[in-house]
């Protein structure tokens, strides 16, 4: 399988701070990669460089064969081919669910209103919101808003969707509905990079796990290996923190 994403020696600094340190890795077409790691390890930074929401200072990133950070490329065309789902949903609050989904098809893909509207209705149906098509974001629950955001990304008809902690802002009872939509996409062959702390999802859906710390991908393994036998000490520590937040280590003696 050819690569969907190819990161080559990517380096990024925020001022003096080395946020991404020589990151090199690939994601194949159709793969689901879950990215995990402690807070501040650079997960968001890394995923945001993939559609150039963040600039990089060294290295190259290819998505679907296109050099994303090359000067002179029409970044809007490249971005239209990459879905992005945010932790905070970032729906456009002045537009209905349908209009949110229609925006990219209308403005970027050049569809007619009728085509875009039909596409939006179908996608909202697919994420289980067929009955809320004309709702405004403020009238939707967090889980519903995030599903609209996923439909909005799907409307770009891109083969790749990036998720930055898509369920972290949700009340616990709404996490499941969003994850199940994501599982469905994975099953349909969508290439996905998912930053998440949902280890159950990772175990069930991921093809590979990337463990990040201090701006590096310290570990890249199959879920079974990662959960049963993490190689790096920091990965072991991270797993014990995530899986057993109130574990024995924190009990007072």
């Amino acid at each position: 399988m050819p690569d969907m994403i190819d990161l080559q020696h990517v380096n990024k600094w925020y001022g003096q701070y080395h946020a991404l340190n020589d990151v090199t890795n690939q994601v194949k077409k159709g793969e689901v990669v879950v990215v995990c790691g402690p807070s501040g390890s650079g997960k968001s930074t890394m995923i945001r460089t993939l559609n150039r929401l963040e600039p990089i200072q060294g290295g190259r990133i290819f998505v679907n064969g296109e050099d994303i950070h090359a000067v002179g490329r029409d970044i809007n065309v490249l971005r239209a081919g990459i879905g992005f789902v945010f932790q905070q949903f970032n729906l456009f609050p002045h537009l209905s669910a349908r209009e949110n989904v229609m925006l990219s098809p209308l403005k970027v893909a050049g569809m007619t209103k009728a085509e875009a509207s039909e596409l939006a209705a179908g996608l909202l149906e697919k994420v289980g919101l067929g009955h809320r098509i004309d709702s405004m974001p403020a009238q939707l629950s967090g889980g519903q808003q995030q599903r609209v955001a996923i439909a909005r990304a799907l409307a770009q008809k891109s083969p790749l969707i990036l998720f930055d902690e898509p369920t972290s802002a949700l009340d616990p009872e709404m996490v499941g509905e969003v994850l199940s939509v994501m599982k469905q996409l994975a099953a349909e062959g969508m290439t996905m990079v998912v930053v998440t702390h949902e280890m159950g999802f990772a175990q069930e859906v991921a093809d590979r796990i990337w463990f990040m710390d201090a701006g590096q991908i310290l570990e890249d393994s199959l879920p079974a290996e990662f959960f049963s036998n993490p190689q790096h000490p920091r990965a072991r520590k991270f797993l014990s923190d995530v899986l057993e937040p109130r574990g024995a280590a924190t009990l007072p003696y």
Binding site: R79, A80, S104, K107, V108, A149
Partner: peptide, 10 residues
């Protein structure tokens, strides 16, 4: 808002 707008290719 701007990030989401740019992300969908606007």
């Amino acid at each position: 808002q701007m990030e989401a707008a740019r992300s969908i290719g606007l």
